[in-house]
Design a protein around this nucleic acid. Structure first.
Length: 879
RNA sequence: GCCAGGGUGGCGAAAUUGGCAGACGCGCCAGACUUAGGAUCUGGUGGAGCAAUCCUUAGGGGUUCGAGUCCCCUCCCUGGUACCA
């Protein structure tokens, strides 16, 4: 390819300014206690979602959000804020480990190389990060505090009285291990044989692993869990004060899945209970292992009654049968001799099914009667008890009351098995059986005539008075499965002695992973760390925990560490935390930009950890992220998702080599709204590059020798009136647009500004300076260079453009003295006229009605009405 | 299925409280300067029509003097979710 002449010498000026910024640490954010710390400046914390440094390097999607935050950071600095704008690496992760399995190269080496590559790319784009705060989650200096936070969680419990986490020492019950926020449980987990590890629910998509798309099976295993369910209520409630997209809040609310209703107790008909092992026979340990909300509470398991959860207690009279999940612990005791064989067969059939098969909505309902019966607590009716796999063990109590008249699933089941259907809510007009909406209760002696909402309240009160049920709130959210069978992650600061776990002291941190030759999973579910015999053996009678933490652990608190990244005494210094995470808003980080893919994973986990640390008195605010913005995905030029497979991946460095970093940045922002998905276009980059070249040529011209010199057209003269007006309109627009993160329209405005001056024979230096300041956050290299050049001939108080204060527009320059008004007849534009600004309505009407064009159109008609919108439009209605 | 967000020129997109639809950019057309143009500058560019004029914001209906914007219905796209009782 032939070397094309550059429209302006970005290849020289960009590295020059990047070096300059580096050398004088231009973007360093001083901490409290630093000599240059200024307590009078307000703080502003602007955070990017830090990347996982993959081998592929950055693609053009990464820098989209990074450019947006960089513009805001540079803008806020010019507005006098001390800006914390850091970058780091989410460095633990599966790809480096899998690469190690293939090649034997230690993940630490792979990771280090990838980080170097990422950093080179980011620096070449000219981001104003404070690189002195760079962190990597895989460094012992970092993960020792990840482990320390785990210890805080482990050594805490959630006190329902205070609705807060408290040190475990305040717990007065018998067994602290039963209430810790980090606990061990034998739970059915998502086991991925291919990856050799378990996965969190959130990491499983359609029965396959999110990473790699490998099959995932359910299997009971002993795992570390974090009791995030304790915070379900607060995680929903405290979203309210946050400046997040409503869609993301909703996503989190739905994921947490709060349902209000009642637990209703159905007595099992006495004669129907088959004598068997009583539940009392279960050991205490077994009960404790039953993982919080993952299985029904112990109370629900009684030989004499079955508890169900329902959001529609008002339909209790319509409950004509019950269904238990096949795995429900009561099934054995309930099943009659006659049904024993059928039940066993059904349970076996279910157990062999994969999750995918079980949740296949299209499939027909299946189930089998247990032969037992229960009593409907409302009407004393004897109802059959069935088991069916459409009832899930993992939600509610694992048992339901079936109301086929008002639940589609129950209806389908009842029809298939010939179970009775009784309507208890008057259907809305035209609704047939199966009506699931709200209405008026019927066939329900206690509730007849009551609308659904009232009927719910009444029946719950009645159930509570009679000891047959209680008001209850349930959540879909499950506790967080926190252990992984991997090598490349944080080891737990835990040892096992006599079959019991105990925490290591803080003084023993960090716990570093052992050196290993072989990173392969063992295939048995034993983590790779189990191969490190020496490492495991902690003492005579204690061994180390061999699981590691999931990748989320490091990213749960990295934004905290950025506040004080080199602190060797604390995870973050008290003063630094108070400064950067304080302020008047409900949450700590002022602006957080990243992809939607983290809407429920990272953002929920981080909020959870943050709340625990807040409850324990380590943080100033209960929420981490005040304003959240999701950038949209950038597609390839072909409109498809960028991937190697389609060959449509764009490398930022290629774009920068041809058009420069400023063009790259500006194009990324000019493409369209930040939040929107949009395709890449090299022609678009070229267009933006032309715009920047025009800016360059406003200030510079080529002399005879072909060198760029300050243009003779640049003169220290006053702006013409219209130029001044445009300048102030541009200040206003660009300022408002940056605040709103509407960078595409900010750039449009600057294009208009530049177009105006491109034609001017004389370029007033004040107009050029203003343009450079407005454009600086977007194109920092170009504007820095031109600013310096202007200073050569027209010295300015600000030697460097980054020393400039952001301008304010003067509204006085924006007022018009004339208004061009649109003339409409019957709503259609027919003409225009110029009127003095704020002309009296009567005057405008007369002017409109005497307009020849209007007269022509209303000739022979009667004017019914004249609508005047001040300074804008007149609409004459005539017929 | 349910929830959320979208649908505006050939393309990316603009459009305060309802008030000139298509700013800005790409592409395209024409011109200027040029040995040259894939540089730069100037003008044009939603569609139909010689024109006056008519049509046009996925489609249909409604409210209004006036609707891209508000209301109802339908279709399509994108993301999330999936028997959650």
């Amino acid at each position: 390819m032939s070397e094309r002449r550059k429209p302006y010498p970005f290849d020289q000026i960009e590295p020059k300014w990047q070096t300059d910024w580096d050398e004088r640490s231009a973007f360093r954010a001083p901490n409290p206690g630093d000599p240059d710390f200024d307590p009078n400046r307000p703080k502003f914390y602007i955070l990017d979602m830090f990347p996982y440094p993959s081998g592929a390097g950055l693609h053009v999607g990464h820098p989209e959000g990074y450019t947006a935050t960089d513009i805001v950071a540079r803008y806020k600095r010019m507005r006098g804020f001390t800006v914390l704008h850091p970058m780091g690496w989410d460095a633990f992760g599966l790809p480096a480990e899998q690469y190690a399995i293939k090649t034997g190269q230690h993940p630490a080496i792979t990771t280090r190389e990838n980080i170097a590559k990422f950093k080179t790319q980011l620096k070449r784009i000219g981001f104003s990060y404070d690189w002195s705060r760079e962190i990597s989650t895989a460094e012992p200096d970092y993960f020792r505090w990840t482990q320390w936070i785990f210890l805080q969680i482990y050594n805490s419990w959630f006190n329902p009285e205070t609705n807060c986490a408290e040190p475990i020492s305040t717990y007065t019950g018998d067994d602290p291990n039963s209430v810790r926020l980090a606990y061990v449980a034998e739970v059915p987990v998502n086991w991925c044989p291919e990856l050799g590890t378990v996965l969190a629910n959130e990491e499983v998509i359609d029965g396959k692993s999110e990473v790699g798309g490998f099959p995932v099976v359910r299997r009971p295993m002993r795992q570390w869990m974090l009791r995030i369910t304790a915070y379900a209520q607060r995680l929903i409630g405290e979203l309210d004060g946050l400046d997040w997209p409503e869609g993301i809040k909703l996503l989190q609310r739905n994921w947490i899945g709060q349902s209000e209703g009642a637990v209703v107790r159905f007595a099992v008909t006495p004669g129907d209970v088959v004598a068997g092992e009583g539940v009392a026979g279960r050991s205490v340990d077994e009960r404790l292992l039953s993982a919080g909300d993952c299985v029904p509470s112990y109370n629900s398991v009684s030989a004499h009654s079955i508890e169900v959860f329902t959001t529609r207690p008002d339909t209790l009279y319509g409950a004509t049968y019950m269904v238990l999940a096949p795995e429900h612990p009561l099934v054995d005791q309930l099943t009659s001799e006659a049904q024993r064989e059928a039940v066993a067969a059904y349970r076996e059939q279910i157990a062999s099914k994969s999750d995918l098969e079980r949740t296949d909505l299209a499939k027909e309902k299946t189930g089998v009667a247990t032969g037992a019966f229960a009593v409907n607590p409302a009407n004393g009716e004897r109802v059959p008890i069935w088991i069916a796999d459409y009832v899930l063990m993992g939600y509610g109590t694992g048992a339901i009351m079936a109301v086929p008249a008002h639940d589609e699933r129950d209806l389908e089941f009842a029809r298939k098995f010939g179970l009775p259907i009784r309507e208890v809510v008057q259907p809305a007009e035209g609704e047939a059986i199966g009506f699931t909406g709200d209405g008026v209760a019927i066939n329900s002696p206690l509730l007849n005539g009551l609308p659904t909402a009232e009927a719910k309240q009444k029946i719950i009160s009645w159930l509570e008075e009679n000891g047959r049920g209680t008001r209850n709130i349930r959540f879909k959210l499950r506790d967080w499965l926190f252990s992984r069978q991997r090598y490349w992650g944080e080891p737990f600061p835990i040892v096992w002695r006599d079959g019991k776990h105990e925490a290591l002291g803080e003084s023993e941190l960090p716990i570093t992973p052992p050196a290993l030759e072989d990173f392969k999973p063992t295939g048995t579910g034993e983590p790779p760390l189990a191969k490190a015999w020496d490492w495991i053996r902690y003492s005579e009678n204690a061994t180390r925990e061999t699981n590691t933490m999931p990748q989320w652990a490091g990213s749960c608190w990295y934004y905290l560490r950025f506040c004080d990244p080199r602190n060797a005494e604390r995870f973050v210094g008290i003063e630094a935390e108070r400064h950067w995470m304080g302020g008047s808003q409900p949450a700590a980080v002022d602006l957080y930009v990243g992809g939607t893919e983290h809407a429920v994973l990272h953002l929920l986990y981080a909020r959870f950890w943050h709340k625990v640390l807040f409850d324990l008195g380590h943080l100033s605010k209960p929420e981490p992220f005040q304003r959240l913005v999701n950038q949209g995905m950038i597609l390839g030029e072909d409109g498809r998702k960028m991937s190697k497979r389609w060959g449509n991946v764009v490398d930022p460095l290629d774009v920068i080599a041809e058009y420069g970093a400023d063009s790259f940045r500006c194009y990324e922002m000019f493409m369209g709204p930040l939040e929107q998905m949009k395709p890449w276009s090299m022609k678009g980059v070229e267009g933006v590059s032309r715009f920047l070249a025009r800016v360059w040529r406003l200030v510079m011209e080529e002399n005879q020798a072909g060198d760029w010199v300050l243009s003779g057209a640049v003169q220290d003269v006053a702006l013409e009136k219209r130029q001044r007006k445009l300048m102030h309109a541009s200040i206003k627009k660009v300022t408002e647009d940056i605040e709103a993160l509407a960078f595409n329209t900010a750039i449009s405005q600057m294009m208009v500004y530049v177009n105006e001056f491109t034609n001017a024979p004389v370029k007033p230096v004040a107009a050029l300076r203003m343009l450079l300041v407005l454009l600086n956050p977007f194109a920092p290299h170009l504007t820095s260079e031109l600013w310096a050049t202007l200073n050569g001939q027209f010295p300015d108080a600000a030697r460097d453009i980054t020393d400039c204060a952001w301008p304010m527009h003067d509204p006085a320059y924006l007022v018009e003295d004339e208004a061009e008004m649109v003339l409409q007849v019957n709503g259609k534009v027919r003409d225009k006229m110029t009127m003095p600004i704020d002309a009296p309505q009567a005057e405008v009407e007369v002017a409109a009605l005497t307009n020849p064009k209007v007269q022509e159109l209303i000739a022979g008609k009667t004017v019914r009405k004249v609508v005047v919108v001040q300074n804008k439009l007149v609409n004459v209605v005539a017929n």
